[in-house]
Amino acid sequence: MLLEVIAITTEDALIASAHGANRIELITGFMEGGLTPSIGLIEQVAQQVSIPVQVMVRPHSRSFVYSKSDVATMVQDIKAIRQYGRNGIGIVVGVLTEAGLIDTYTLEHILDASQDLDVTFHRAFDEIADQEQAYEQLSNYSQIKRVLTSGGKPSVLQATDRIKRLVEMSKTSHVAILAGGGLHTNALAEFIEETGVKEIHLGTAVRGPMGANDLVESDKMHTVRAILDQMIGKKIK
Rank of each mutant, 00 (worst) to 15 (best):
S173E: 00
V147R: 03
D118H: 10
Q48E: 14
G90Q: 06
K68I: 00
R62H: 15
I102N: 09
S61L: 05
L2K: 14
R162M: 06
R146D: 06
A72S: 13
G152K: 12
D214I: 03
I24M: 10
V197T: 08
K68R: 14
S173T: 03
L183P: 00
T97N: 11
A226D: 03
L183W: 03
H60C: 04
V75C: 14
Q131A: 13
D219E: 13
I144S: 09
T97M: 03
E108Y: 09
V57N: 11
R146I: 06
L35E: 01
Y105P: 01
L2I: 12
V75A: 14
R123K: 15
L148D: 01
R62F: 15
I81V: 07
L3N: 07
E108Q: 14
G180H: 01
G233T: 06
I81W: 00
G203T: 01
I6T: 06
N22M: 10
D219T: 10
S155M: 01
Q48T: 15
Q137D: 10
D112L: 12
I192H: 02
R207H: 05
R123H: 13
D116N: 09
V71Q: 11
V45K: 12
S63M: 10
L2W: 13
L166A: 05
F30H: 08
Q115E: 11
D118G: 08
L148C: 05
L228K: 05
Y135N: 11
T223D: 03
G233I: 00
N213K: 12
I200S: 09
R123V: 07
L228V: 00
Y141R: 04
K68F: 09
V216G: 09
I81T: 07
Q158G: 02
A124V: 06
F30G: 01
A80M: 06
S69W: 00
V95Q: 06
V55A: 10
D70Y: 15
V57E: 11
A187Y: 03
F64V: 05
D161I: 04
Q115G: 05
P52I: 08
I6F: 01
S142C: 03
S155L: 05
I144Y: 07
K164N: 04
V45I: 08
I24D: 10
R82V: 01
A124L: 09
Q76L: 14
A16Q: 02
R123F: 12
A187I: 03
N87R: 13
S50R: 13
K235P: 08
Y105V: 10
V92E: 05
T73K: 14
T73F: 13
K234S: 04
T160P: 01
G152A: 13
L148K: 02
D161P: 00
H174S: 06
D112G: 09
H174C: 04
T223H: 04
L157M: 00
P37G: 06
T97K: 04
V65I: 11
E193V: 02
D214M: 02
G182R: 00
V49R: 12
Q158L: 08
I102C: 09
G211N: 07
A16Y: 02
K234W: 02
H60F: 09
K234E: 01
I89F: 07
M31C: 08
Q143A: 12
E199A: 10
A187W: 02
